[in-house]
């Protein structure tokens, strides 16, 4: 074999190994978490874990429902607050902004994505929590789902804005010209032709944001209050639920892992499994949406 042929073959093996390594890391982590969580699933039972409303490790009660609800609600809140802003950002950058604004705004949005989440947490702690505390509502402490949702909304903004911008940009210009030539205004063109054509890309942007929101830990711990309780309206109207303290699945693990032993430790690994499965569902939904985007294009 020639020298070049040997290098070629060697590189092939190296790259193959790298590929296999990343695959096996995922599999090993999955297996490890699953193994550690098995005692919890075995002794407590899957259904009791998922539906139990009480989490009192000292008394052997391991119900994850409060944390599932906390993660779910804070994610919902973040999407409700962040999606409109992020989507408008993406539309603005892709369709409306003149170049000089785009070169200023886009890097600043990307910078948002680069800020460590603990800094977002600090911002929430120092600015948002005191501000939310001003809302006159029984039981409102400032710490809770609303503050956490706002922090999270800002954190998912760059993901959704940039992915949806790319999706909108990839809509063929022929559609825009066709729409304008029929007498559309620019907004009619965007709303009726461009956005529907970019729909699946925008959906996958949202789902990616969802995944990011579900996985966020430290910023949530800092502002959500971390009380193990089902989020409650505290006797007020339904939106009041967002002033309730809560705890996320991620926070549950991070807060307690340092001192947990035995079944408690295993239950925290089970929390990780629940999170893992949730994020896997979200990610495969995103992938399915994106592949549909490719097929939906011009044949």
């Amino acid at each position: 074999m020639t020298r070049k042929g040997i290098i070629d073959e060697a590189m092939r093996v190296v790259l193959l190994c790298a590929g296999l390594a990343s695959l096996s890391i995922v599999v090993l982590i999955g297996l490890f978490i699953l193994r550690e969580s098995l005692p919890a699933f075995h002794e407590i039972g899957v259904w009791n874990l998922l539906s139990g409303k009480e989490w009192r490790p000292g008394q052997g009660q391991f119900g994850l429902l409060p944390m599932i609800a906390g993660s779910g609600l804070v994610t919902l809140g973040a999407i409700c607050l962040g999606l409109p802003l992020a989507l408008c950002c993406g539309i603005f950058l892709a369709e409306i902004a003149p170049t000089w604004i785009r070169v200023v705004v886009r890097p600043s949005i990307e910078l948002l994505a680069g800020i460590p989440s603990v800094v977002y947490g600090l911002f929430g702690l120092v600015v948002l929590v005191p501000a939310v505390r001003q809302i006159d509502y029984p039981g409102n402490a400032g710490f809770g789902l609303l503050s956490a949702s706002i922090v999270l909304a800002v954190m998912i903004l760059p993901t959704i804005a940039s992915v949806s911008e790319v999706a909108i940009r990839s809509v063929p210009d022929e559609y825009r010209q066709g729409a304008l030539a029929l007498g559309s205004t620019r907004w009619e063109m965007i709303r009726r032709v461009v956005l529907p054509a970019a729909r699946s890309g925008i959906l996958s942007a949202v789902v990616l944001g969802l995944g990011r929101a579900l996985g966020e830990t430290i910023a949530m711990i800092m502002v959500i209050g971390n009380s193990v309780m089902m989020p409650t309206t505290m006797g007020g109207p339904l939106p009041g639920i967002f002033l309730s303290r809560a705890r996320t699945l991620t926070g549950n693990i991070a807060v307690e892992m340092s001192y947990a032993t035995g079944l408690h430790s295993s239950a925290l690994f089970a929390t990780g499994v629940v999170l893992f499965v949730l994020i896997m569902i979200v990610n495969s939904a995103a992938r399915a949406l994106m592949s549909r985007n490719v097929r939906g294009g011009r044949p």
Partner: peptide, 20 residues
Amino acid sequence: VVALRRRVGMVFQRPNPFPK
């Protein structure tokens, strides 16, 4: 310009139906 394009229609070189 919007009213003008309503009176003057256009067909493009490559067929460009909307994905609808």
